[in-house]
Design a protein around this nucleic acid. Structure first.
Lengths: 356, 356
DNA sequence: CTGAAAGCGCTAACAT
DNA sequence: ATGTTAGCGCTTTCAG
């Protein structure tokens, strides 16, 4: 930097100001030009490490993703990274497991590296990590999963609505014995999709209280299969399953196949996420589409805002999901629909709150 | 740090030495203990930014992945990140597009952040980025894709062998009119899998020179479909396709379906990668399995070695792929096999060099 | 084995 | 609008 200053015939501090977009306006354009030229000629670039040491800022953002990198977190990551890098940020990824202490440690480490903010894709409905972020005063946003209470801004899909869309679709097809293949309830996705399922059932005049339901412990095909097995053995009469997630739905496929049943003839299935390739499985999966990449982008936006103006009130961005009808849903098999639903209803439970 | 020094009754430099595992041996154990205790009590942690400014090292590794994040790069990323974080490294991901100048810029930026090394998952067979890394003296390794010449260490799958496995399998089933649905030839994967295809054909006594071949421009389902369409219209007589990648194979599925044909009855297909869910598509895809996560891990190992001892000679780790037989391959339809192959052959072309 | 002191490269008061 | 100066928090010679 000293060399550049010499070559441009100015002081180092002028070089610093000229090279930094934020302070460039303090320098007369002519000097800026000379500095730029000198820097160019010497192949000089500002040292972000030194700058970071001095300013405490780093143009670095940490992102915490579950280590069981399912397909949904990849587009979130790319969406966020893309958007962030447009604004000069780099992204440090940390894959975190379930251990809460390790999570705090990792966050700690990122903070030590002076990240300007954190994107948390791992939040449970009441997460110590969030408490930690708030206490430490690190600008942070949630993505995909929200907390019970909105302590931090975040971007999520309207999971309640998504599940309702699924139920409404099934009811329209004539189903009334609809079961739920739920996700982990400590995550907002599992919790809300279950609630959406219940409410939609009620709104359609079906018995929500006794609706067959089993929860998978994790969002995996294996756990989905295990839960689906429990569901089918306890309630052989069901004609449709609303799954909290595509992977769970595919687990149900495995079970249905192994039971010698046919989807959708014997049982219809709706997934959630519309992850890549579920249009190619057999039968093509009817599911709820969520734009995870867009979630990532918006989380990036939210984080940048949080970084720029601290203590900005927490705000939840809720993205609308969309029903994608494919081959895994159809009319119930004859003689199956013993419980009768109220006449063909898209009676969405409009008043259900979206509180996590 | 000064506070810790005071509290422990030693000088800051002693604190520094005590806290850093590499220099801890210079300090008498008793002092170390006192320092540790004081640090603990104050909740003090070393500042990596300041350390980085001083030492030039950062415990940060950059990884360059293609921005069209297909499924294969996610496990590479997680594998590498896991292994690296075990050794105290954090990972900065950069999603890079095709523009070579932008790639250099991104690498430049990572270097400015003082990354200790770079993992490059984007290399073409002769990549200016590699030249750049070498010139700048940044420890770097390649992963998944290698260069024509081994200028840098790397981890790849044995792509030549993979393609041969695919052809041998098809020949064993009785196919002789086998086509290749190739990948981009500027990448080692596309190039080598094509060569493996050719050599295996020859080794099995089939006419390699005139084997129907079409190349997709990118590894996408769409480009796969386009190339498969060209293949089928130019060579309606083929009974099997060896695809350079699962996505391409799925593109071929689309085309076969739209042509009213059936896989595997009319045409058998073999993919490459064994990415998630291809066992669930219809028909389940026969493919070549590669452990991308393991590739990521080994790339991490190689990079750590390169960081520890500079100017270590470049070394290629070649992982063995494995044929996974599923439902997309079967015997050719009757009357299709007009060309005759040499008797039932697993005549692998053992002597084919693996040079990229 | 430990203390002293210099300085990594930059930025932000403050002064002019 | 620009120059001066004092560190950011650490590591690492060099002395002792």
């Amino acid at each position: 930097m000293k060399q550049v200053a010499e070559r441009a015939g100015v002081h180092v501090s002028t070089v610093s100001r000229a090279l930094n977009p934020e302070t460039r306006s303090m320098v007369v354009p002519e000097s800026v030009a000379r500095v730029m030229k000198a820097a160019e000629e010497l192949g000089y670039r500002l040292d972000p490490v030194a700058a970071s040491l001095r300013t405490g800022r780093s143009k670095l953002v940490g992102i915490l993703v579950p280590d069981i990198a399912t397909n949904v977190f990849t587009p979130i990551l790319t969406g966020a990274t893309e958007r962030l890098s447009e604004h000069g940020y780099s992204v440090i990824v940390a894959y975190v497991g379930g251990d809460s202490n390790k999570q705090l440690d990792l966050a700690q480490g990122l903070i030590a590296r002076r990240v300007d903010g954190l994107i948390v894709a791992t939040a449970s409905r009441d997460d110590p990590l969030v408490t930690f972020c708030i206490e430490r005063g690190v600008p942070s946003v949630l993505v995909n999963r929200a907390e019970k209470e909105t302590r931090l801004s975040g971007v999520v899909s309207d999971d309640l609505l998504g599940a309702q869309l699924a139920v409404d679709h099934l009811v329209e097809l004539g189903h009334s014995r609809i079961a739920h293949l739920g996700g982990p309830r400590e995550h907002s996705t599992g919790y809300l999709r279950h609630r959406g399922f219940i409410h939609a059932l009620a709104a359609n005049g079906l018995d929500a209280a006794s609706a067959p339901t089993e929860f998978a412990e994790t969002y995996t095909r294996e756990q989905g299969a295990a839960a689906a097995r429990r569901l089918l053995s306890a309630h052989p009469g069901i004609t449709a399953i609303v799954a909290a997630n595509d992977l769970l739905a595919l687990g149900a496929y495995d079970v249905i196949r192994e039971a010698g049943l046919n989807c959708p003839r014997d049982i219809s299935i709706v997934g959630h996420n519309d992850m890549p390739l579920v249009d190619m499985v057999e039968p093509p999966l009817t599911t709820i589409r969520i734009s995870h990449k867009e979630m990532g982008r918006q989380a990036a936006d939210l984080l940048e805002q949080a970084i720029e103006t601290l203590d900005r009130p927490a705000r939840n961005v809720v993205l609308p999901p969309k029903l994608i009808v494919r081959g895994s849903t159809g009319a119930p098999r004859k003689g199956a629909g013993r419980k009768s639903a109220k006449a063909g209803g898209t009676n969405r439970a409009a008043s259900v709150s979206n509180e996590v």
